[in-house]
Nucleic acid binder design. Structure first.
Lengths: 215, 215
DNA sequence: AACCGTAGAAACTAAATAAGTTTCCTCAAA
DNA sequence: TTTGAGGAAACTTATTTAGTTTCTACGGTT
C-alpha cells in the first residue's frame, strides 16, 4: 500500500468515524461517506471489504487510542494517583462524549458483538484501572470508603454521556468545559474524605477537544 | 375529536418535529416516533394518513408559528423599526437554528414541494418584511445604502444556520446566546451608518429558546 | 500514438428496511 | 358479558442500501 493509499484509507476511516459518532452507523450509508470524501463506493470497498468491517475498524481504532492514552497516564511515574485519576476521568469524558450515544445505542441493538467489545473494554479499562486508583485513594484515607466505586463510575459515565452532548450544550448558558469542570468538582468533593487537602481540578480543557474525529 | 385525542395528535406532531428537526425526516422512521411516544404505528396512522402528511403538518405548523410571531412584531406600534428589525432577526435566528440544516437539506432533496413551500415562505416573510425594515432604515439615514439587503439576509441566514448548531457550539468556549449576541453586533455595526446612535442589542436570549420542539 | 491501469459514476442484483395495513390479544368501559 | 380501542407483532409491498459490475475517462507509461 502506497503512502497515498494509506492516507486515503485513513481519510475514509476518519470520515466514517465522524459520521458514525454523530449519527450511529445504521443511519449512515456507505454512499454518504463516499460522497463526503469525493470517492466512489468501489474505492471504499477497496480498503474495507464490508460496512461492518469499517465499523469494526472505527471501533478498534478508537479503543486503541483510548487504551494508549490510559496507559500513558497509568505508567507516568511523575503523577500521583489523584492526578492519574483526574486525568483518567478527563480522558474518559472526552472518549464518552465523542463516541456518542447514538452510536453506542446503535451498536448495542444492531452490532452486539462490537458493542460487547466496547463494553468489555470499558469494564476492563475504566472499571479496573480507574477502580484501582479509587481503591488506592480509599486505602490512603483520601477517598471515602462508603461509596461503591462501581456506582461512582456508573454515575460518572451516565452524567458525561447525557450532559456533555451537543443537544444539551446548545440549550444551557454554559460551555462544555464549564460543565465538565463542575462535574469534576461535584465528583471529587463527593468522594473526598476531606481529611487531607487535595488538588483535583484539571488543566482547562479546550472545547476543541470535544470535536469528533479528532485524536 | 376529544380533547385527549387532540392532545395525543399534538404530542405526535411535537415528537415528529423534534426528531425531524434534529435528523431530517428520511432518517427518522415512523416506528421510532411511535416508540418514543409509547404508541403503535397504527395510532399514528389514525391521525396522519401518511408520513408525508406528518412531515407536511410539522412544516406547516412551524411556518404558521413563525408567521404569527413575525406579524406580532410587525404590527406592534410601540416598536421602532430598529427594534422590529432586531426582534425579527432574533426570531429568524431561533427559527433557522431550530429547524435544522439536516431537515432543510433532506426536504430539498427528498420532498422538494415542501422545501419550496418553506423557501417561498422565507423569501416572502424574511426577504419582504425584513427587507422592508432595512429599506426604511436606509431611507432614514440610519442604515448604509451601499450594501444590498438581499446579501445581508443571505449572509445572516448562512451564519445562523452554520454557527448556531449543536456540533459547533460543543466545540467552542461560548454559549449560544454569547455567539448570537456577537453575530448581532457584527451585523448591526456593519450596516449602520453611524450618523445616529442606535440601540440594537436584543434582550438576552435564554439558551432554552434554542430547544427544538419548543414554541 | 497506443496501451494499460485505476477510479468515478451509474447501473445492477440481492438483501434488508420501512411505509402502511392487518391480525390477534388484552384491557377498560358500558 | 359484550364491545371497542389500541398495543404488539406479523404481513405485504415498495423502497432503500450493501456490495458488485459495467462503462468511460483520464493519466501515466511505453
Amino acid at each position: 500500500m502506497t503512502e497515498q493509499e494509506a492516507a486515503l484509507r485513513l481519510r475514509i476511516l476518519k470520515t466514517a468515524q465522524d459520521q458514525f459518532f454523530s449519527h450511529g452507523f445504521t443511519k449512515v450509508t456507505v454512499d454518504e461517506i463516499a460522497n463526503r470524501i469525493g470517492v466512489s463506493k468501489k474505492t471504499i470497498y477497496k480498503f474495507y471489504p464490508s460496512k461492518d468491517e469499517l465499523v469494526k475498524a472505527v471501533t478498534e481504532t478508537t479503543l486503541k487510542d483510548v487504551e494508549q492514552c490510559c496507559r500513558q497516564i497509568i505508567d507516568d511515574e511523575n503523577l500521583g494517583f489523584v492526578d492519574k485519576l483526574q486525568k483518567m476521568m478527563t480522558h474518559a469524558a472526552l472518549h464518552i462524549s465523542k463516541m456518542g450515544k447514538p452510536l453506542i445505542e446503535d451498536l448495542e441493538k444492531n452490532a452486539p458483538e462490537i458493542w460487547k467489545e466496547i463494553s468489555d473494554f470499558r469494564s476492563k479499562r475504566i472499571m479496573e484501572d480507574f477502580g484501582k486508583l479509587l481503591k488506592e485513594g480509599v486505602a490512603k484515607g483520601i477517598f471515602r470508603k462508603d461509596i461503591d466505586r462501581r456506582l461512582i463510575l456508573l454515575i460518572y459515565n451516565n452524567v458525561i454521556e447525557n450532559v456533555i452532548s451537543p443537544e444539551v450544550l446548545t440549550q444551557i448558558p454554559f460551555t462544555a468545559s464549564q460543565v465538565y469542570e463542575t462535574i469534576i468538582k461535584i465528583f471529587f468533593e463527593g468522594i473526598l474524605t476531606g481529611e487531607k487537602p487535595v488538588k483535583y481540578l484539571p488543566k482547562k480543557i479546550v472545547e476543541r477537544s470535544f470535536k469528533k474525529g479528532k485524536k
